[in-house]
Design a protein around this nucleic acid. Sequence first.
RNA 1: GGAUGCUUAGCUCAGUUUGGUUAGAGCAUCUGCCUUACAAGCAGAGGGUCACAGGUUCGAGUCCUGUAGCAUCCACCA
Length: 957
Amino acid sequence: MEIEKTYAPENFENEIYQKWEQQGCFKPSYDSAKEAFSIALPPPNVTGSLHMGHAFQQTIMDTLIRYHRMKGDNTLWQCGTDHAGIATQMVVERKLLKEENKTRHDFGREAFIDRVWKWKEESGGNITKQMRRLGTSVDWSRERFTMDEGLSRAVLEVFVKLYDEDLIYRGKRLVNWDPKLRTAISDLEVENRDVKGFMWYIKYMLADGIKTADGKDYVLVATTRPETLLGDAAVAVNPQDPRYKDVIGKEVILPLVGRRIPVVADIHADMETGTGCVKITPAHDFNDYAVGKRHQLPMLNILTEDARIRDEAEVFDTNGEITDKISGYIPEAYRGLERFAARDRMVEDLKANGLLDRIEDHQLSQPFGDRGGVPIEPMLTDQWYVRASVLGKPALEAVKDGRIRFVPASYANMYYAWMNDLQDWCISRQLWWGHRIPAWYDEKGNIYVAHNEDEVYSKYHLDRSVKLERDPDVLDTWFSSSLWTFSTLGWPDDTVELKMFHPTSILVTGFDIIFFWVARMIMMTMHFMKNPDGTPQVPFKTVYVTGLIRDEEGNKMSKSKGNVLDPLDMIDGIDKDSLISKRTANMMQPQMAEKIKKRTAKQFPSGINAHGTDALRFTLCALASNGRDINWDMKRLEGYRNFCNKIWNASRFVLMNTGEITLAKPLRDNLSLADRYILSKLKESIENVTSSIQSYRFDQVANYIYDFIWNEYCDWYLEFTKAILNSENVSNAKKAATSYTLVEVLEAIMRMAHPVMPFLTETIWQKTAPIIGKMNDSGTIINAAYPQASEWEKDIKAEEEINFIKEFVTVVRNLRAEMKIVPSTVIAPIFRGASDLEEECIRKNFSFVKNLTNIESVNFVKAGTELPMCASKPLRSAEVLVAMKDFINKEDEIKRLTAMMEKIKANIRSAEAKLHNEAFVSKAPAKIIEGARAQLQLNETQLEKVEQQLKELEKME
RNA sequence: GGAUGCUUAGCUCAGUUUGGUUAGAGCAUCUGCCUUACAAGCAGAGGGUCACAGGUUCGAGUCCUGUAGCAUCCACCA
């Protein structure tokens, strides 16, 4: 059998994947008689690259997909990529600026979009290449892109329908504005960061000689954003506040501007906080916006798109209509200043005018745009919104009543919390890369929504002379991805795939996008997809939520921290220098590079070794417990690489012993005890692994596979078979039976483990399946049947007998180790006081025992037989002894026995305490009491033996 | 401020839903072995008052209450 000595995955993984893909192994069977199983891959950013989170989630999905495919299900894994609006546009803009020193405006909209498409063509293959390396068995023939024709059609359809149903509207509202990217972003894209700042206390002089209760001619306003006072529309105090009761309804003079603004009473002003008196800037603060609405205040927008002070404020009435009732005057000194420069300047001026009472340090959490990285600015703009509050209701119900199940269930709470208080979703973005909003405006600003411009004329019965202009904005990326499960299956057409594979079976994703994506997918899908009976269809029945993969110390992996691990590097390895240059390339803060270099060199002094895809996947599975974050552990990966090597070598052993001849299924009578035992354990393992997959416990899947292969098949069974195969006293028929069983179990193990470790199992399966006639027409394990426990029998007798042999072997090995008898020394242990059954078991299976302990014989003697100086160890209610004369000294042995005795005595005490407890005996279930009794009895027998042994020992010289 | 999760061996984690013999795994450590599949290995060993304090129970790592620390999410922050 030609199979190399060491596991070298790089020799076969790529080749196998290519063969699978060429053969079309990943396509569904489209057999409607079979159960359907489908997963929609969360579409990665088209120009991105694979990170640990992808590797983790795709491993889980692939494991499920391969399992169901092997079960014979009609299995679809729908894949594709996302255009990732902001992220992609930013990358391309940065690239163009760096390489050609041009902005997108230099190109113009169309030319710029062309460049983005070009970039997508160039780099879009990266992530799919990496997915292939990971063994991801998606149906590549159905690969989609969120901006391809079909999906764009779905987006258009959804937008128009929702608009016609009044579930999408356009409105002037306060939005989160990113002044760097110059676009609106949704609430979710805002990240609050704690920053050190200041609180400025500013005097607003009272007009008309009014005074406060304590006789001051001003009110003191505390603010963290002094520059926004240019847009103040009022000052608010609490209606209950005695300090200000006299000034309510009066006016103050806006510092630096001179405009008169009212003092209003509003509960928003908290008497306990600050000075109890708060400035109201409706166009630049969300709370103030609400206060403004309540008091019909005007809204003054003082900022430009890039957050500079305007020359004159835009003034709107409380309904958002432009008004000239209020002056939008802004002092010349501040015009055109960037927002923070304006702040400094204004604070100086306030100080000079004696209007600044004091400045205090203040800890505040400031909103930042998660993409642009600069503080966001609440801005009054026209944007498009989805009435999430309406769509959210059925979406909430679907999870509450169990049509959609979260795994782990605790994530449902997070979902409820958000869905219960759902804000309308701002879907327009002032970008160029994305789905352009299908809305047109005439010269009067009337809105027309349709699939295209032609349709606008017919739909709205417009005369062709009406000039239309299309809305320049594009849709939030998540708008198109919220349609992902059905748009990829051909909606709005009524396709076979939709009928067959929707709802999808399970969604595997990170908790960080439950709101961004999962919730919105549920909302959109339930609105547009209906079951035959008209009830809303959910996008998936189960949501499996994964945790984050962090580094060894529990830090998030991020480019800026320089602690990112690339899954491909763990598969194929990387040398130290390449790793360092990879981690320090294109740093946003170049000063960090040196630090990262040092740390990387320290942590990976010789780079990262290649471990192969299977080891990586196995590790990811083993770590996948309960949706918790995972601290990545290189050692664990190494351990499982070793496991792959173990499987490899066990296979070598099997194949060396069987050759490439085919073997016939043996008669049951010819099976050895060991054969029957391992087949029985195989059955148990398949049961365990199968039920673990079904309950999404991938850590258990990995553990059961590991435990069976290493601790049963390799450590015990393979060793037993050596005694059979190398013996001259065993018939050829029986040897053949054992050879067959060796292959039979190995072949089944390969199928059992294939969903987790596809490449290694395919390789070994190719060699083993033909031997026992299990090769299939397609010639790949992908289409082999998943092993079923019912194919094998439980053999309790064989298990019990082998268990006793194992115990005996372990006791002898223990004695050896404790006596420091080297393995090469042949010994002849004595088995004193064994039952007839026990004696027979050891006699009958002496060849097994001999092989595993290097003994020449076992001497059986009756209980109580006096023996020369021996070391002993209890075995059930008997004992195993080794003549000790050459091996040990008396004191050591006494010490050892005394320690053992103490242990036994402690056991006896605990059992006795229980059994003497009236309450325990009367209340505990019979089974437990029986157990305690048995424990007591066994320990008493053993104590007797040990005591006797001690006595004998002490007598001797 | 609200919510959730976590705290178990030196490290990384299972086990807690449904209470029941002596709490498990991998890695690391120690001892002895190159035994014809595997030194990426084999055989053994040591190591845990299950965060803390109460309670319920015959019995608590597991259930209840409280405390502390850590983490995350949401809200607010004049």
